[in-house]
Amino acid sequence: MKGPLFYAKILLFGEYGIIKDSKGLAIPFNAYRGALKTSSNLVDNAKKSNENLQRFYDYLANLETDLVTFNLKKLQKDIVNGMYFDSSIPQGYGVGSSGALVASIYDEYAADKITVLENLTREKLLKLKEVFSLMESFFHGKSSGLDPLNSYLSLPILINSKIDIEPAGIPSQKEGKGAVFLLDSEQIGETEPMVNIFMNKMKSEGFRKMISEEFATTTDICIDNFLQGDVKSLFGNVKNLSKIVLKNFKPMIPVAFHKVWEKGIKTNDYYLKLCGSGGGGYILGFTEDYQKAQQSLKDYKLELVYRF
């Protein structure tokens, strides 16, 4: 067997904010992808993946929910026959490796699944998000369900709030100087510890105030600028967001990148923000001049995501 491809995702804006009901914007990232495959000779990563699928099967078999049912018999049989998730999506990098896996399992084994081809009403999108949240909680302890949703639909998704999500039209890429890029921290980040740090910080009234008055507001403006193609305003607001994140989310930024982050804000060569939960993996960069950013960050691995 060989299943369909599911792509990585990038949450351009909204990390942590979406946990607390502010806006978010996620886009598929086709440079990385994964698919279910079967092999009679499992070694290394394929073997590890197969064992992981068995644990995931146990989790799904014990889910108590009316939202979704799975063809568990077929799933178990396929795992025994050597099924694994063949993926180029780096794990612990904030680009949705578990999301693509969840999407592929839902696509192959969910009974009465909601398909990408039908009219995706808000109710259907929310139901899918809820199902995916339940499924992906196996990997992260707590999941918004957004990564698998993005991977499953392969569409940009605008999150207005927990109960209001919609497919989004993003401006088509131009051959300009500006860019969104990924900066490789070359360390793996784990979602759960980072989310726990955030939840503990949320117990402080000052932090909650900063989230609602500064972080969420600036994130919302950045999303509006991006969707409207207002690049000039976008960079001013992303710079502001970068400052807010550096000041308030230091534990989520690998220590080796605190100075790199500051340098971008000081020189205006680039502005950095978290990609996913942080703690390692990729850091997301925005620049008005990609060549200048490449020069400024010449000691690091960069990957292009989107051109302005």
Rank of each mutant, 00 (worst) to 15 (best):
P4M: 10
P4F: 12
L5C: 10
L5G: 03
F6M: 00
Y7E: 02
Y7L: 02
K9D: 10
K9W: 08
I10C: 07
L11I: 12
L11H: 00
L11T: 05
L11G: 09
L12D: 00
F13G: 05
E15K: 08
Y16G: 07
Y16W: 12
Y16M: 03
Y16D: 02
I18D: 04
I19R: 05
I19W: 03
K20W: 12
K20T: 12
L25A: 04
A26C: 09
A26V: 15
A26W: 01
I27G: 00
P28D: 05
P28S: 05
F29S: 01
F29C: 08
F29Y: 13
F29H: 11
N30G: 09
N30Q: 15
A31D: 13
R33F: 14
R33H: 14
G34C: 05
G34D: 04
A35P: 06
A35I: 09
A35C: 13
K37R: 15
N41T: 12
N41W: 08
V43P: 06
V43G: 10
N45M: 14
N45S: 13
A46K: 06
K48N: 12
K48G: 12
N50M: 04
N50D: 06
E51P: 00
L53F: 03
L53I: 08
Q54E: 13
F56V: 07
D58A: 15
Y59T: 07
L60C: 10
L60W: 00
A61P: 09
A61S: 14
N62Y: 13
N62T: 04
N62I: 01
N62K: 08
L63N: 06
L63K: 05
E64H: 14
T65Q: 09
T65D: 10
D66M: 08
V68P: 02
V68I: 14
V68T: 04
T69G: 11
F70W: 06
N71E: 12
L72T: 11
L72M: 09
L72I: 02
K73L: 15
K73R: 14
K74V: 15
K74Y: 12
K74R: 15
